[in-house]
């Protein structure tokens, strides 16, 4: 039963179920349409996030940018504002996660993944989020890292003490717990404006993208093997490691499901018709392995939602199992790519 239900659950969590296309061109077109649909939603939700942050910043500004005064005068409004911003951040972020496996895998759009979600602030030789962020007060942050995960996630959830302006009892329980604070409105305004700007820029480039076989194969083989890294981040997060672990706003398993769902979608729609035409058995094997991979992740997420707490040992074992499946998928896709003369542009 699990073999049937879990892939379906995985597909639903990833956006929609992966649909095999009749022809390669139909599949590529479907991928582009799917990505544009979620990209448009991302732009809409990023604008909503920017507007919520604007309201928060206006409240602070109304008190001369004195956070303590603003909290004293309009604490309930600000607490509601922070809650709303966090919820809206998750909505926007999840729209991006749904298409991340595609955006990051296509060479023409990969840089947007670094800027929006996955890049580092120059701390490593590769995968740097190469852009500057201008803030309303005129400050320009050079290569500040990704907008979702380096800047706004720790900013909104208070895990970056450098940008927490005032400890505040947001939940009204009489105590100031972890993450209860008012964050830097100036940085938040700049970062959310940046999210809107770069989401729209991605949209423009995605509209201009001409779907092709090389990109489809490249997306699958570059993004699928990242599953192990995401399991590693899950293991290091507070979802497993307790208070001392790295903070993430939602379980990394949600991201894994979305990203692997994107890879599965790309394969089913755009790559499978090519592979199946030359070797139906190989296509069936890859399709089955993708289903297994998504089922494993979905089942793990389901157990987590049910309240199960995993040990680091279990997380490692699950991550290794997922990585093993992913590597088998990629090896098979690359073998097919070689047969069809596909160029992989990582």
């Amino acid at each position: 039963m699990h073999r049937i239900l879990l892939p379906a659950l995985a597909g639903l969590l990833a956006g929609t179920l992966p649909l095999a296309a009749e022809t390669e061109s139909e599949g590529l077109a479907a991928i582009k349409a799917f990505t544009l649909e979620h990209n448009a939603a991302l732009v809409t939700e990023a604008k909503r996030l920017r507007d919520l942050v604007g309201a928060y910043a206006a409240t602070i500004a109304a008190h001369g940018n004195d956070y303590a005064a603003a909290w004293a005068a309009e604490g309930a409004t600000l607490a509601d504002g922070v809650r709303g911003i966090r919820a809206q951040w998750l909505v926007a972020s999840n729209h991006y996660e749904t298409i991340e496996g595609i955006v990051a895998g296509i060479p023409a759009t990969a840089r947007y993944d670094l800027i929006l979600d996955a890049g580092n602030p120059g701390t490593e030789a590769e995968d740097v989020a190469d852009y500057d962020l201008a803030l309303p007060d005129g400050t320009v942050l050079e290569r500040p890292g990704s907008l979702f995960h380096t800047i706004t996630e720790p900013l909104f959830w208070g895990s970056d003490p450098g940008h927490a302006k005032l400890a505040a009892d947001l939940d009204g329980d009489g105590q100031v717990g972890a993450g209860e604070m008012l964050f830097d409105a100036n940085l938040a305004l700049g970062a959310t404006a940046g999210l809107v700007f770069w989401s729209e820029a991605l949209m423009a480039d995605m509209q201009a993208w001409e779907p092709n076989r090389d990109d489809a194969f490249t997306a699958v083989v570059t993004m699928t093997p990242t599953v192990g890294d995401y399991f590693g981040e899950w293991k290091e997060s507070q979802f497993l490691g307790g208070a001392g672990a790295a903070f993430v706003a939602q379980s990394r398993l949600v991201d894994v499901l979305a990203i692997m769902g994107g890879c599965q979608r790309m394969y089913a729609a755009a790559v499978s018709p090519v592979v199946a035409a030359g070797d139906a058995a190989l296509d069936a094997a890859i399709t089955g392995a993708f289903a297994d991979l998504l089922a494993l992740v979905a089942e793990t997420r389901d157990r987590e939602v049910q309240g199960e707490r995993f040990t680091a040992e279990e997380a490692d074992a699950l991550g290794a199992e997922a990585q093993d499946i992913a590597e088998r998928v990629v090896a098979q896709v690359l073998q097919a790519a070689a047969r069809h003369g596909v160029e992989i542009r990582g």
């Binding site: 093997p225 088998r328 990629v330 090896a331 690359l334 073998q335 992989i344 990582g346």
Partner: peptide, 8 residues
């Protein structure tokens, strides 16, 4: 290698 075409 960067792109691993050999299964584990």
């Amino acid at each position: 290698t960067r792109f691993v075409a050999v299964p584990p």
